[in-house]
Structure formats: C-alpha cells, structure tokens
Design a protein around this nucleic acid. Sequence first.
RNA 1: GUGAGUGUAGCUCAAUUGGUUAGAGCGUUUGGCUGUGGCCCAGAAGGCUGGGGGUUCAAGUCCCCUCACUCACCCCA
Length: 418
Amino acid sequence: MEEELQSRGRRDILFEQAELYRKLENISVEVLSKYNYQEIRPPTFEDEKLFKRTIGETTDIVEKQMYTFTDKKGRRLALRPEGTAGVVRAYIENSLGKITSVTKLFYLGQMFRYERPQKGRYREFYQIGAEYFGNAHPVADVEILLLNMEIFEKAGLKDKVELYINSLGCKDCRQKYRAELLKSINSRSKDLCKDCHNRMEKNPLRVLDCKHDRDKFKDLPAIENYLCDGCKEHFDGVQSLLDSGDCKYKVDRYLVRGLDYYTRTVFEIKSTEKLGAQDAVSAGGRYDTLVEQLGGESVPACGFAIGVDRTIELMEKTGQKVKKVFIAIAGLTGNLGLAGQAIKIARLLRKNDIFTEGPYPDKSLKAQMRLSNSLNSSWTVIIGEEEMNKNTVILKDMTGQSQEEIPLDNLVADLLGR
RNA sequence: GUGAGUGUAGCUCAAUUGGUUAGAGCGUUUGGCUGUGGCCCAGAAGGCUGGGGGUUCAAGUCCCCUCACUCACCCCA
C-alpha cells in the first residue's frame, strides 16, 4: 500500500463482521419500535459550539478529541463525537416537544473521536442510542434501562452483560457532595496518582473512577448520603421499578460519567468478560437540564448509547452460521445449457430464502466441489446433462458423504425440510 | 497527548557475528482422479523485507527520521 494512502485509525468492516453490525442494528430497531421510539437521523457534523456547550468545555472529548474543521465559508464545524447533543439540538429546533408531551427518539451511526486507537476503541465508531424527552418520573429511566437490556438479550448476550446504576443527584446535591469530596481528597492528596491530581481540578467526581487509586477510596464520602429528598426518592423509585420489571442490577456508588450533562440516574452496562481495557458496552442516564441549557424549554430527559463495536466483539464470541447451498455443474466445462439450468435453480432457491452460491461453469467439477467445500456449504446441488433431461438433481450433503438423486420439483421442499 | 512492543508472500512466521538467488507452513491455483469436496502426493503463481535517508566492500539484519499496526495509560461507548 502506498504510504500516503494510510491514515491512522481507519478500518474496514468486512463480510461476517459487517453482517453482525447489521444484525445488531436490526435487533435494536425492532426492540426500539416496540417501545414506540422513532428514528431520527441527525447530521454527522454540527457547529463546534454545540458540543462545547453540551459535553463540557473542559472534557477531553471537547478539548482534545474532536475532529474540527473550517468549511469554505469559515464556519467552525465538528464531526459528532457522540449522539445526544445533536438529538437534543434537533428536538429543540424542530419543536418536537410541541407535537406530543413526551418524545421518544432513537438514532444509529458513526461517531468520531481523535484518540489513540486500541482494543474496543476506534476513531470512527458506531453507536445506537435512544433519548426519552418529557418524563421526569423514574418510569422513564427504567424504560430506558429495560429497553437497553432487552436489546442485549435479543442479541444473545443476556449472560454476558451486567447493569450498574448510580445517582449523581441534581445540581444542588452534587455541588454539596463535590465540596465534601474535594475536601476529603485534598486531605490525602499526596497518596494520589498524577492523573488524580489533574482530575481534582477538572472533575473531582472522576477521581472515584481511577484505576490505580480506586481501592483507597473505600471511606470517602458517598454520594448517596448527600442526595436531597427529591433525588433520593427518585433513585429509590428507579430501583423499585427495576425490581418490578424483573431486571437485575447492582448499585455502584463510584459510578461516574464523563460528560457534564448528566443528573440523577447514571448507568453502565458492562461486559462480564474483559474486552481489552474497556468493558462498558452501553452507558447513559438522565439529563434534566440539558434541553434548557441549549435554549429550549425546561424538559426532563434521559437516554443511552450502545457502543456497537464492543458489542460486536462480544457477539463474535457466540457466532452462528447460515446454511448455504452450492450449485455445481457436471460435464464439459462451458456448457451454456447447463449454466442456464443452474441459474434457474439458483433463482428458485433464493426465491425461497435459501442462501445459494454458484454456478461456476468454467471450473471442473472437482474445482467446484473444492470451492463448495471451502465456502462451508451445507449442501451441493449437482446437475449434468443426464439430470437436466430427467428433470432431476443430485443433492449432496457436505457434512458427510451421502448424496441422492431427487426430482427437481422436490428440491425446495426437501431443503427447507432439513 | 504519554508509554511499551511490532512491521519480511493473502495469513502465521523463519533467515547464524551484517555475507551468494530472502525460506517454510497454511491459503490460492493446476494436476494425480476425462462427473464428486475434506486426507495424501507432485507442480505453479505469489516479495521494492512499510517508506525515506545514513553507516559499510556488503543491510531484512546496525543507526536516524517517518508512516502504520498492536496493547496499555489518559479519556470514553
């Protein structure tokens, strides 16, 4: 490959893997529709300021990881590093809150962050997300959670993920907590790593998340003791309703989010086995002040985003195969009459939703059989002059050695019956 | 942005202290088997050793730069 065509963090998603992406997307759309969420496709680029205002000016995402550029008219734009900001902007801009009192939206697609790539983290990555506007009650949080878990369940990952929840409180309780936390951390600041010192200044809550120091924090003040009555009641409500919904979860009082806009409920769905250093396959929470902060009315909201690429990695470990048929031609190579017959049969099979490969008239039968084998076909259908005249085919089971001659008219029923 | 490791055939990897024409397995392909795959055997194709510069009589091997990949930190889904 020519050197100038390479660029870091670019990747191609091929074949079986692409199939898994589509499968997860289909499952998600199906589940989301059942919960009455409607699709929205916001642009992949927005005004840079949108992300600065929503995600937080001092977060790394905005400070270092955005793909920003200036267009020909001098506008400052950015490729979206996450989905919520654009959806909220669209919600306000299109007055979606005026149509119905609650609004449920979902989106899927690529996000972009300029980071050093590693396992489960790419510069262009996929998210599937949902946002629920206009309902402050814990049922909304819980609907988002149940919905999210149902997607993983349908994707065959029920035993591979766990739900962790926490409450960060509203502005008031968080401010109080933050002050106490800072005091407590400060008193032992020399024990802490370099990164934690940095976090103390930018976002003290994230100190709780530190990989090195986390174990030293068992006795730090816990957010749950600082929640105001309203926030406490809300969080209790979430837990009670999750129980009603028969949804397992763990409360993790150290669970924190990196984005500034979260209030009250936050959650992560983690893989039970390590996916490299990253184990969160989905995350989200409530953001009751964001709509107003962006110039809309005061509307409560909550949502989630699934890390599709990481979820695919999990799904790859539980792979399943599609059964395929290969159509082979016996006799002299290049026989157009036989090729025509093969095409007719292939059309017939595909019409009946059977995955069909072939024909390859210019290969010897041996070569065709080898190809069929290496394509992992379940069966090979063989036709030659003799069979065509009798209107039959030879159906060979590729998992063993057996084959039988059957009337062409029975082929579809026979295959579907197996 | 920081750190460590790695770049040789489509893939996984060899190549002695720097020393002839850079090898092997898998895969691909052709044949052994004129209408039957997997196993076996024989042949073939496939390389600017990531790119550039330097040292040297001589560089895949040593040095510098650069690009990319992998993993981790940071951050986050």
